[in-house]
Amino acid sequence: MSELRVRAGGLYTTVQDTGRFGHYHMGMPPSGAMDTYSAVVANMLVGNPDGAGVLEGTYIGPTLEFTDDRVVAVTGADVPVTLNDEPVEPWTAIRVRSGDVLGFAMIRAGCRAYVAVSGGIDVPVYLGSRSTYTLTGIGGHEGRKLADDESLPLGAADGPGPGGAAVPEDLRPDLTGTAQLRTVVGLCSYRLTEGGLASFLGTDWKVTKDADRVGYRLRGGTLDFTEREQPFGAGSDPANVVDLGYPIGSIQVPGGDEPIVLLNDAVTGGGYATIGTVISVDRDRIAQTKTGDAVRFDSVDLDTALAARRDRRERIERVRSRIAR
């Protein structure tokens, strides 16, 4: 069986695909690649199905050694990539041979790099997905992040592929500047005062060190809750509600000063008031913000959210047709 050698695991590298669905009702989040667009495009470049297993590296990428002829592509964060210590292009299909070593330098922008290898990272499928959910240690490679000096199984590739296909610049995400996160305000936003909501939308929030696959904690402003007699069963804090389900992308503000945006490994429910939800497409963008970066929330309606989703699908199809040529 063919394998990929992990010489160095990097800071926090996991196997992900497009996610594990249908288990939210029992408390299990979907996991999956945080930046869906980059993961799907990486697979496309190497000739894999969109949902094949890829590696998601965070801040410090892994060092990987190939043991046979493959095609590899790196997408996502803006980070210098090397093959045998020579620079190679990201967003491009690269042919590799046994003994070749793929490495990463320091990231310039963004947070998460995706590595797709032709044939896919072929870890066992658990509940319909190869995605890693580290909190309970399921899926991916032994339910955990990669360690140094180990191996991952690769699937069979339909021939090594030509290599050379590249994603045009205009179809690569722009990761510079303040991340604008389009947000459908609602859920329990009635808990905020008018001024609280204005402050939420008017603040440049900064990503704190507590920003991982479960959620991003932000800082930079204070939000006021309306006074009320707490309803039965909710608990005494003004930010408390009767425990309810949290959508992926939903924003809660425990304590009123540090909003948390829940992401792919979200806790699925709890007792804090949610005040809105980042639209699915812009989860790709927050996934590429790093500790210290600035984000803003822009209030949009459902039509805008659905249109953004259609746009992303069209962009993916444009990449597909450009690569096929």
Partner: peptide, 18 residues
């Protein structure tokens, strides 16, 4: 009835538990 972005619909039946 509330939209939790484009992928979720959230329905609050009451603010109090019963």
């Amino acid at each position: 009835y509330e939209y939790g972005g484009d992928e979720f619909v959230f329905v609050e039946l009451d603010q109090a538990m019963s």
